[in-house]
Design a protein around this nucleic acid. Sequence first.
DNA 1: CAAAAAATGATTGACGTCTATCATTTTTGC
DNA 2: GCAAAAATGATAGACGTCAATCATTTTTTG
Lengths: 355, 355
Amino acid sequence: MAFATLHDVAEAAGVSYATVDRVVNARGGVSQKSVLRVQAAIKQLGYARDVSAANLARKRVYRFLFLLPEDHNDFFHSLYSALQSHAQRPNLLRIAVTTTRLPAFSEKALIEALARIDPATVDCACVVALDTPAVNAAVQRVRAQGVKLVTLVSDIDAASRDAYVGIDNYVAGKTAGRMMGLCHGRQPGLVLPIIGTSRAHDHIQRLSGFLEIMQAHFPQITLLEPVTSRDEAATIHRELDDIWRAHPNLTGVYNMGAGNDGLVAWIRGITGRDRPFMVIHELLPNARTALEAGLVDAVIDQKPKEIITRTMDAMRLLVDGEALPTPAPVITPAIYLCENLPDTPKETDWMPSND
Amino acid sequence: MAFATLHDVAEAAGVSYATVDRVVNARGGVSQKSVLRVQAAIKQLGYARDVSAANLARKRVYRFLFLLPEDHNDFFHSLYSALQSHAQRPNLLRIAVTTTRLPAFSEKALIEALARIDPATVDCACVVALDTPAVNAAVQRVRAQGVKLVTLVSDIDAASRDAYVGIDNYVAGKTAGRMMGLCHGRQPGLVLPIIGTSRAHDHIQRLSGFLEIMQAHFPQITLLEPVTSRDEAATIHRELDDIWRAHPNLTGVYNMGAGNDGLVAWIRGITGRDRPFMVIHELLPNARTALEAGLVDAVIDQKPKEIITRTMDAMRLLVDGEALPTPAPVITPAIYLCENLPDTPKETDWMPSND
DNA sequence: CAAAAAATGATTGACGTCTATCATTTTTGC
DNA sequence: GCAAAAATGATAGACGTCAATCATTTTTTG
């Protein structure tokens, strides 16, 4: 009554269960006439496959391995936590996750970790890659053993991996730019961009998105030469002190890397004139506190939970040998002001993806 | 090897499957000693119940009924679409959703619909309620027949229903206020709030949140008396024409109701001076287009999909007789600028797609 | 120590789907 | 109209858990 089963479909279509099974699982060898009758019955009964039963019968188990950089970098840290909390969810779809953290930017460590992957215990690996020939080769060696491979955040040669789940730092930078521009209310201003290192792909992309929006839509705002912080709080603090003295008319700061603690400490010490507008990245506890305290105006967040969910979706599809959605869905950054901060503690979202 | 089963647990604990089953399903009649051994084995093996298999064996089917207002109101429309798209998702958790739309604000229609609920075919109903004694009584009559009842967005007496899933329009209004304030870049301004009807709870809440933030944090901005639009595009257009003429220094408009088409049409016609900053609600296609065209600055969105997900979570827990999380999780509004718009979702096939 | 009570073991049939095998019927080609 | 090919039917054993029954063992109690 409530839910039609394949047996119901078979009866309604006037064929045997075996034929229905051949149709829904595309096994072939069914006449056009039967296919149509089955499809009609499915539609008529509103049949929907019971995925639980299907996965059970298929004995599907997904064993995933994540290789993440072990970095102070805020973003990877939040990615890691998202992965941890995901792993603790009730076991709806039989996913077993193993995580290994590697020294950041170490080609050698990455290649070794890739070589250590055991095809007998891993169905699909997810790697924050470095785009070098040696890594490409190592990845292909893994894949040759039947392990699917997904690159995350940082891609390699498209032919070397099975899929790539990216975040659009360019869009994140543009969003930050729009936010910064709006904060100036059509007034002129002087804005300082801070990047972590000029070597990091993601910071470069954020910067170019930011600059593009600022120049295109807010020409009355002057941009200072970007400062490099090496993601160190102390460096940021020092640099800001200098610039603040040199530019009494500074109206905005956009930090696209880590080191927000130094930034916040510096703001706390400002006296005499209005602090500049502050736009920073990643909604971590310190950023949250700063927002709530009114020390920062906006936080651009890459939604690590959503990234993890999307990645796992892709990995599942790969292991099942199914087609990945094209174009790959893009995760757009969220904007947090101090009023719309999400609830902190309980992560009870254990519904399957989709949101 | 990959996943331990209850049989594995039984073996590891040195007891029979039956005993393990008694422990994990709390059937009682097990000695303390055995309980401990089973728990130890579960922990040691990292056993996690296979929810798919469990649900299958339990024959759990959740039959949910939604009673939603049939309104032009943008918000309920997006809520309805979210529900539709949720219903089309692959059938992971065996949820059957029926939706009935009712004339908005009609107490009579609501009570009749509640009376029509058949306990034999509905496990849990979700209602956008009206807080009147007659509705309260009708709700209690439904519950007396064993149907769980959740109120959505608009609550009634807490004792009358099983749960309430709310949205915080106050927070939404505050977020809009912050956004509007920031757009003024510490400059003075003159801002017009537009509400749908002064009778609608949600608009009142948005308004008070908006006013509170504006007064507390942006005192240099003057607020005009809120205009009532009855959510009609034509009314908004006309009112704005008048106000725009009467107040040459208008710098911002916040529309907390529907009727954004009229608003956008009006903006299109502006010449001579800068348009005011525009903050509106609900990321519907027209709002999206307006954002992309640069006719609107920010859209505050209540994330209807997330609301639906949360509601279904609560309904499931109720039907299972489990405890609801307290305090109820709050959904915070999202802020969209023209750079961080999400991908438009695409439709799925009718065919039973796995996963 | 025997009887009663409590705990445990052993087993079975669902649940809906997958996968496989084998027998039977229908269609096609000549 | 006959053989070969294609399509269909019938059936059965998983998958991991739930829920139930009944037999057996162990512990408690007087």
